[in-house]
């Protein structure tokens, strides 16, 4: 199923989509359809409620003794990792941090969630997020992906985020931005502008930064092979950060 899923076709596969068991290619077409069809979004939302409700029928079960303590230890270790990685970001420790990976996973998940929540609930959202953020596939950069670091303009303060462009089809853009790492606590709308090799540009979406931090993702109608990079611009057109795609 390609990019032209009809409402009738969507109703055929909607249950599988809502339950998160629709094969990837069909899912991509369905998601694209939902992006432009409010009726089908509502339909899927209702089916997602059913899926959530089904899980709610599962009986609870007491975990093994000591579980709470082990979770606490795990959270403590994760927080310690994050703190250490923050030091990496400031150049106080060698940079190859957990935080950036974690943030990317979070960003990819959140971007997918943000999109998914336009039409559905947790199930669809987390299923989509898993595609980008499953533990077994953490922030891979392979033949199907373009990746670049976002860097601030002019100050040479280093990376302030990452952009991933999944070749698709459909092509998807995910990005995570943390301008606070460069001391910029900008808040407000920013635009993601993709730059072609011939210098022309196309704005593919806007999202909001809070205190310099934000994440976003969306399908993009672009040919990935023609792209050279990306820019982040504020509402007044100021370029906040740029990225240059290397070999994918």
């Amino acid at each position: 199923m390609g990019n032209d899923v009809t409402c009738e076709q969507l109703r055929e596969i909607g249950a599988e989509l809502a339950l998160g068991v629709l094969p990837g290619r069909q899912r991509a077409g369905a998601v694209e359809h939902l992006d432009r069809c409010a009726d089908c979004r509502e339909y899927i939302e209702q089916l997602t409620l059913v899926g959530d409700g089904l899980l709610g029928l599962l009986p609870g079960s007491e975990p093994p003794a000591g579980f709470e303590t082990r979770v606490a230890r795990r959270l403590h270790q994760a927080a310690a990792h994050d703190d250490r990685s923050r030091l990496h970001g400031r150049g106080l420790l060698p940079r190859k941090g957990f935080r950036s990976r974690a943030r990317m996973r979070l960003a990819a998940a959140a971007a997918a969630l943000a999109l998914a929540f336009g039409f559905g609930g947790w199930t669809v959202g987390t299923v989509l997020s898993n595609e980008a953020a499953a533990p077994s596939r953490p922030a891979e950069v392979g033949a199907g992906m373009l990746h670049a670091q976002l860097t601030t303009v002019g100050h040479g303060r280093g990376p302030v985020g990452e952009i991933y462009l999944h070749r698709g089809p459909p092509t998807w853009v995910y990005m995570s931005v943390d301008l606070a790492d460069a001391g910029n606590m900008y808040g407000g709308k920013i635009s993601c502008v993709l730059v072609h090799k011939d210098g022309s540009t196309v704005r593919v979406g806007t999202f909001t930064l809070h205190h310099g931090y934000g994440y976003w993702g969306a399908p993009a109608s672009v040919n990935p092979t023609t792209l050279s990079g990306a820019r982040l611009t504020s509402a007044d057109g100021t370029v906040l950060a740029t990225a240059h795609f290397g070999a994918g």
Partner: peptide, 26 residues
């Protein structure tokens, strides 16, 4: 849940439903 708490949106569902979905997918 700890990492993603900031993106939890109560309009989309209860905390229980959110956690259940995370656990289920994992």
């Amino acid at each position: 849940a700890w990492r993603h708490a900031q993106i939890y949106d109560s309009r989309r569902g209860s905390v229980t439903t959110w956690l259940t979905a995370i656990a289920h997918n994992l």
